[in-house]
Computed example of a mutant assay.
Amino acid sequence: MNTLKSTALEPAPGALAGLSVGRRIAGLLPVYGLVVLTVLLAVLFSILLPDTFPTWLNVRSILGDKAVVAMLSLAATVPMMTGKIDLTVGYGVVLWQILAISLQIGGVPWPVAVLIVLAMGLVFGLINGLLVEVAQIDSFIATLGTGTVTYAVALWWTGGRQVIGQLSPGFFALDTASLFGVPIPAFYVFGLALLLWVVSSYTPLGRYFYAIGANPRAAELNGIPTRRYVMLAFMTSGVITALAGVVLAARLRVGQASVGLEFLLPALVGAFLGSTTINPGRVNVWGTVIGVVILAIGISGIEQLGGAFWVEPAFNGATLLFAIGLAGWTGRRRVQRATKHRRVKVRAAKPANQ
């Protein structure tokens, strides 16, 4: 198979050697600009809110509260690597948290209930993959349709009421436990991110995902079974979404259809922001994590400053527009750089041919 070049904007190894400090900073800014912005935002809120923001209690709160959003962002990131979008990360988490509670109320031991929910998430991802690859329905339309049906099933299952019953303390520990003083959900996020990073960056599977996302036709011509890997991406997303639903159920301790949809927008924002940092121009795992962190810091700081109840959705929506705009700008810049590089090579080759 031919080597497929990255579409990201990160400088090639040694590309910044010999440049002035200013030019090096300019070269690295598109790569780590969002990371720097995250740090500056944290410093700003720490100065404005010295008694509440730079505290371990606030850090624990952010790590615990945003874990579900982070998992859903990572779930959305995987199909985006293949050039697809999965809107069911926001809808599926509603049904999975209800199912995790309902199974236990029905007498199923909580470990078995968790495994059933994860298996259902896998099947649900497979259905999305079949609709996109076999039925050839656009991923946005397909996942919006299946997501809406999923939400309708959740409403039917609960009758619009809360699902309440006796649950095991062991199930609650999936959310309430801590390790070294850090909420256990933060370790779920870190473990998932580490696993996805290794797979996407250092295995053929990750290269296949990015190749399909860059050019599905070229990937097919290079012998990559695109249908199989796109379906695998949706199945992975389904399992991670189901895991997020389980953690959410352990946190809420009741099943209700009115909770979950508010995670859709921040999850997508985190994934889109992930394509603007670390490897700008390409969706990547650590970029997604940074995207969720900057959302968490921004919302936490604004709320502590006395922001109204509508601040969070407004911040998420504005950040989404910013992320998409920045992603488009980095994409255009990549094309301009490639064009300029080709022109320089042509000019350099002309004297040798004369």
Results as ranks from 00 to 15, higher is better:
L192H: 09
L192R: 06
Y188W: 15
V189P: 02
T146V: 00
A152S: 15
T203E: 02
A219K: 05
Y151M: 07
P225G: 09
P216D: 01
I184R: 13
A152Y: 14
G191P: 12
S201C: 06
G181H: 03
L167S: 04
T203K: 03
S178G: 07
W197C: 13
G159S: 05
A152D: 13
L155Q: 15
V182D: 06
T226I: 15
G159T: 04
G159D: 03
L179I: 10
F140A: 09
F190K: 11
G181R: 05
L205F: 11
A214E: 09
Y208I: 00
S201D: 12
G160S: 11
N222Y: 07
G160K: 06
I164R: 15
G160R: 07
P216N: 00
G165K: 06
V149L: 12
W156H: 05
W197N: 14
A173D: 11
T148S: 13
V199Q: 12
L221M: 15
L196E: 04
Y188H: 11
A142C: 04
R207Y: 12
E220K: 09
A186M: 10
G147T: 10
I184W: 02
L192F: 15
G223M: 13
Y151K: 04
R227Y: 03
T176N: 13
R161V: 02
I164M: 15
L205S: 11
G170F: 08
L167Q: 03
G213T: 10
I164C: 11
I224H: 00
